[in-house]
């Protein structure tokens, strides 16, 4: 099971998606819809994915992230990842995510930086 919780920071300019549980192909479709639904309402969206409590992820998760990254870029926004557990970090590195977006150790650290950058 995947649980996702979304919150907005800085007057709605940053969408924070907090994931826990297991992210596989079965869970990916609904997550994609939920995030896209929020992104559509935002101009130059800043998207932060908090993966600290994600117990399992496979390449379906990478697909969700990459798809959202493309959408966010198309709207001249930015995307970051926070707190990936070691096995998730390994997949992110294997597929080069660390080269296209910032991966922070915690949500707090990510938000400090993302709030500081001019909108």
């Amino acid at each position: 099971m995947l649980h996702s919780h979304m919150l907005k920071e800085r007057a709605g300019s940053i969408l924070v998606v907090i994931l826990s549980g297991e992210l596989d192909h079965h869970e990916a479709a609904e997550l994609r819809l939920r995030i896209d639904h929020e992104l559509e309402k935002m101009d130059s969206p800043k998207l932060l994915l908090d993966l600290r409590d994600l117990a399992f992820m496979d390449s379906a998760g990478l697909g969700v992230f990459l798809g959202r990254y493309k959408k966010v870029l198309a709207k001249k926004g930015e995307m970051a990842i926070a707190g990936p557990p070691k096995p998730v970090m390994r997949l992110l590195e294997m597929s080069g995510f660390h080269r296209i977006m910032t991966i922070y150790t915690s949500r707090a650290e990510a938000l400090t930086v993302m709030k500081g950058v001019k909108a």
């Binding site: 496979d58 390449s59 379906a60 990478l62 697909g63 990459l66 997949l91 597929s95």
Partner: peptide, 14 residues
């Protein structure tokens, strides 16, 4: 179209 990355078999191989 399904946001598949083509990384599945690469991950398995590693």
């Amino acid at each position: 179209d399904l946001d598949r990355t083509g990384m599945g078999l690469t991950i398995i191989e590693s």
